[in-house]
């Protein structure tokens, strides 16, 4: 069925996407929480900035990452000096590119779930002796969790498909940055690569479909369970 190289491409894609989601998760949740709850001047601007990777040409996002994380970029220098890490032309860079591209989708899903949390329940927890942090950990977070999971799965699916920003930022290096879509594109350029394209494309469809269905199931759980509860309590 699949050749060892093709298995390697799938494994790399899964690794890049998992790390991308793990990196983006805390940032996405924090942004979602701020956008759902806080009121401050410039909120519209922050909202727009978060959504920028969704609408910007991916090449531009990749080029901006290149500027920031390149050998002479401010973020690149800082990472190199603090941790001795370089992202350029590495799989870690592919993960960062995928994380940036997945962030808007993750924030959207999480923001909806945080907005759906009944704040009166948080008030009830406070009157029962729970401080702000405990209320967050034991009431807000568990109630928002289905949406957080849905956002993570959606981000994972988006990361698996990431192409433009990745190839711009970390190029196409087999075994290092050649993820599924990049490998498919490379195979398309090669005479006799049709069979590889077909196999990898089928893997892509299967992975994306599974992730979308998982995300939808989680979102449904979020939408239904709390609403049912409210109806009965009232």
């Amino acid at each position: 069925m699949l050749s060892p190289e093709e298995w390697g491409i799938i494994a790399l894609s899964l690794k890049v996407s998992c790390v991308a989601v793990l990196v983006a998760l805390p940032a996405a949740f924090a942004l979602a929480f701020v956008l759902a709850r806080a009121r401050f001047p410039g909120k519209i601007l922050l909202d727009a900035l978060v959504h920028l990777p969704l609408v910007l040409p991916p090449v531009v996002t990749g080029w901006l990452l290149l500027l920031a994380f390149g050998a002479n970029g401010p973020a690149g220098k800082l990472l190199d000096r603090l941790f001795g890490v370089t992202l350029l032309f590495r799989w870690t860079g592919a993960a960062v590119a995928a994380a940036v591209m997945a962030l808007p989708l993750m924030v959207r899903a999480m923001r909806l779930s945080i907005e759906a949390v009944d704040r009166r329940l948080e008030g009830a927890a406070r009157t029962l002796g729970a401080g702000a942090w405990r209320t967050f950990a034991q009431i807000t977070l568990p109630l928002a969790m289905p949406g957080v999971m849905a956002g993570a799965v959606l981000g994972f699916a988006r990361s698996i498909g990431e192409f433009g920003a990745t190839i711009t930022f970390v190029s196409n290096i087999p075994g290092e940055t050649q993820t599924l879509p990049i490998a498919i594109y490379a195979a398309l350029q090669m005479p006799g690569g049709d069979a590889t394209v077909l196999r990898l494309a089928m893997v892509s469809v299967a992975l994306s479909l599974a992730a979308l269905i998982a995300s939808e199931l989680l979102a449904r759980r979020m939408g239904h369970a709390p609403a049912d509860d409210r109806r009965h309590v009232l």
């Binding site: 329940l121 008030g123 009830a124 002796g129 009431i139 369970a225 509860d229 409210r230 309590v233 009232l234």
Partner: peptide, 18 residues
């Protein structure tokens, strides 16, 4: 803050944790 007041508040709508 509410958590320091030690009140037992029974809300009209129950507000049990779902």
């Amino acid at each position: 803050p509410p958590e320091a007041r030690a009140c037992g508040y029974v809300f009209q709508d129950g507000r049990l944790f779902p």
